[in-house]
């Protein structure tokens, strides 16, 4: 619905962004594919590299660290998703209630989302989870329990707590926004029908939240599959491989072992996993574009 001049202007103005993103997508990916087929050590330099076929994939997958890292990735992503979605719905419902000081409460809830990953990881690691002087240790001791040495005994749980704390606000904020758009007349009608809170929640609120829940799961998955900084500044992937997820394994191969080929192979595996999630998300958002 426009003139050819407008359409032409549209093409010209959209071109730079499309071109840049095309380069951004294709060049690194093509290089990753290329490197994954090379025997290439960063210390020896590119001149010393040689073609090695699918050997990198073979060694990367055969490495016991690979399966462990995949398992750790899914444990981390899965646990954080469960905690943040359930907690987020609860918090969203509470914030949507008719309460005093809703504004300040909301501000407090959303705050952790804006804290950079390195900060939240270090604050939790030291001020809270330190087995001697941490706040948690003091609470345990006060109640007569032995303090937990989080990063030695339950490193993954510690990481999950930190990451869940960062992402709970995101889920809560989105569910609260979605709840606010719930038709007021529907609420009134349910009240007139005498629906008890449980069935009101099950038959009206939950169906209304179905889409936001999907959105939260998909978007969080994309970010959580790439969790890096939290591990980097706390456990460094350890003890052993206990907290090494796929991104961290790739980082370790590349920048600690200087094995470019192996890291590229691992990176491609991460791309495949992320794409499975992104297909669903893209479909969902695409549907939304039509309405």
């Amino acid at each position: 619905m426009a003139t050819s001049e407008t359409r032409l202007a549209g093409r010209i103005l959209a071109a730079p962004s499309i071109l840049l993103l095309l380069i951004w997508m294709i060049v690194p990916l093509a290089l990753t594919v290329y490197f994954s087929l090379l025997h290439y050590n960063l210390l020896d330099g590119y001149a010393q590299s040689s073609f090695t076929g699918v050997n990198n994939f073979y060694y990367f997958i055969k490495d016991p660290a690979f399966l462990t890292s995949i398992w750790n990735t899914f444990v981390l992503v899965g646990s954080v998703l469960v905690i943040t979605v359930l907690g987020g719905i609860g918090m969203g419902l509470l914030l949507d209630q008719d309460i005093w000081g809703q504004g300040p409460a909301r501000i407090m809830v959303i705050a952790p989302f804006f804290v950079m990953a390195t900060v939240s990881a270090l604050i939790w690691k030291n001020l809270f989870m330190n087995p001697i002087s941490g706040l948690f240790a003091w609470v345990s001791t006060s109640f007569g329990f032995t303090p937990i040495d989080w990063f030695t005994d339950y490193p993954m749980v510690a990481i999950i707590i930190i990451v869940a704390w960062q992402w709970l606000p995101f889920a809560a904020l989105i569910f609260m926004t979605a709840l606010q758009s719930l038709d007021g007349e529907q609420k009134d009608a349910a009240q007139m029908d005498g629906a008890p809170p449980i069935s009101y929640f099950a038959y009206i609120v939950l169906p209304h939240l179905a889409r936001p829940i999907t959105v939260v799961i998909l978007i969080e998955s994309i970010f959580l599959l790439g969790i890096f900084a939290e591990i980097f500044v706390t456990t460094g992937g350890g003890p052993g491989l206990a907290t090494t997820n796929l991104p961290f394994l790739v980082y370790r191969e590349a920048l600690l072992k200087y094995d470019v080929g192996g890291a590229a192979a691992g990176g491609l595996i991460a791309v495949v996993i992320a794409n499975i999630v992104s297909i669903f998300l893209t479909r969902l958002v695409g549907k939304n574009l039509e309405s």
């Binding site: 990176g267 998300l281 893209t282």
Partner: peptide
């Protein structure tokens, strides 16, 4: 949605 991990190597190089 492209994971940064996947392209860390080429970008780095």
């Amino acid at each position: 949605m492209m994971p940064a991990t996947g392209v860390l190597i080429p970008i780095y190089v």
